[in-house]
């Protein structure tokens, strides 16, 4: 059974068909890219998987369970985490606090325990801080843990968001344009970092990306969408040779 199964998924906004019966799988241990021209439906697909949008038809299964049956604040407990295209950080908080929010579901304590500093809660909190700081180190921001995220450059903010998603120990990580809006050197560093996420932390990844060299460098498989339809799927090399993909990107000759 695949970790993520997208089955005949359709999403309509009024008369606009954003996704039209799209199906594909992501197996555990894979890194899969979702590519396609602007407006192809990539982010829409992410939003269905993470319960932001409701599908008009079809299903998304995570470890065999339909995401429709999972409440949105429980999505994380099913091993699913994501990052956003324009980073959705808590801007006034420090790097550490941002990552701690990502970790709070790991500390199983109720309201009262979480608001009154009892000994058990204090121990849980320091364990939580330790995990958060380790993850901040992992993404290479150890020196900036106490800085407010708003003061960091965009490339660093993307890594904070990555740390926040990873600290919950997801099995499947959805990345919305991890290389978008950052400089050349940062793109290479991000590719190296994601490879380590894949190998060291054993996280399966589905990513949306426009940067083709980046996609070809880190992905096992590529799914291509155009106008809400899947037009190709295969290894990076296969997809690059596919006439339908070339046409979608460059227009008919």
């Amino acid at each position: 059974m695949a970790l993520l199964e997208v089955r005949e998924l359709s999403v309509r906004f009024g008369g606009v068909v954003a996704l039209d019966r799209v199906s594909f799988d992501v197996d555990a241990g894979q890194v899969v890219a979702l590519i396609g021209p602007n407006g192809a439906g990539k982010t829409t697909l992410f939003n269905v998987i993470t319960r932001v949008y409701r599908p008009s038809g079809g299903t998304v299964l995570v470890s065999g369970r339909s995401v429709q049956t999972i409440r949105s604040h429980h999505v994380i407990r099913h091993g699913l985490a994501r990052t956003f295209q324009n980073v959705a950080l808590f801007r006034s908080m420090t790097v550490l606090d941002n990552v701690l929010v990502g970790d709070h579901t790991q500390t199983r304590s109720g309201w009262l325990q979480a608001s009154v500093p009892l000994p058990g809660a204090v121990a849980a909190e320091s364990a939580s801080r330790k995990r958060a700081l380790e993850m901040i180190d992992f993404v290479g921001l150890g020196a900036h843990a106490e800085r407010p995220v708003a003061t960091l450059p965009f490339g660093f903010q993307k890594r904070v968001e990555l740390a926040r998603a990873l600290v919950s120990k997801p099995r499947l990580l959805l990345l919305d344009e991890p290389a978008g809006g950052i400089s050349h050197e940062e793109v290479d560093a991000m590719a190296r970092l994601l490879r380590r996420v894949h190998t060291d932390l054993d996280v399966t990844m589905l990513l949306v990306e426009h940067h083709m060299a980046f996609v070809m460098g880190i992905c096992d498989r590529v799914v291509v969408l155009d106008f809400g339809k899947k037009i190709a799927e295969g290894s990076p090399a296969e997809v690059q040779r596919n006439p339908a993909v070339i046409e979608a990107y460059l227009g008919a000759a």
Binding site: I76, A81, A88, S168
Partner: peptide
């Protein structure tokens, strides 16, 4: 939105 996906009610 982001909080919900991080498990915040």
């Amino acid at each position: 939105e982001a909080s919900r996906l991080l498990g915040v009610q």
